[in-house]
């Protein structure tokens, strides 16, 4: 699983950081920062949930 984030779309709600803190962080302005572009299977559910609740649809999962 590969994760992509679209920083220009991010609205800094921070929800991804609450759900998957090992994969997502925020910069000083709250904009999403990807900590791990290819998180392990143990994070898959949390990453999926993050993508689902992201209000700006700024998180994308790419299955390889």
């Amino acid at each position: 699983m590969r994760v992509e984030v679209d920083q220009p779309k991010c609205v800094a709600s921070g929800q991804c950081v609450l759900v998957a803190p090992e994969v997502f962080d925020q910069d000083d302005d709250g904009i999403v920062v990807l900590l791990d572009t290819e998180p392990g299977a143990e994070h898959e559910e949390a990453v999926r949930e993050s993508a689902a609740i992201c209000p700006a649809a700024a998180i994308r999962l790419v299955q390889e």
């Binding site: 609205v11 800094a12 921070g14 950081v17 609450l18 925020q26 302005d29 709250g30 904009i31």
Partner: peptide, 16 residues
């Protein structure tokens, strides 16, 4: 987005 981003900094999860 331009205006909102001026005030997002205090609301990051870490700051909260």
């Amino acid at each position: 987005a331009r205006l909102r981003r001026m005030v997002t900094a205090p609301f990051t999860i870490k700051k909260m």
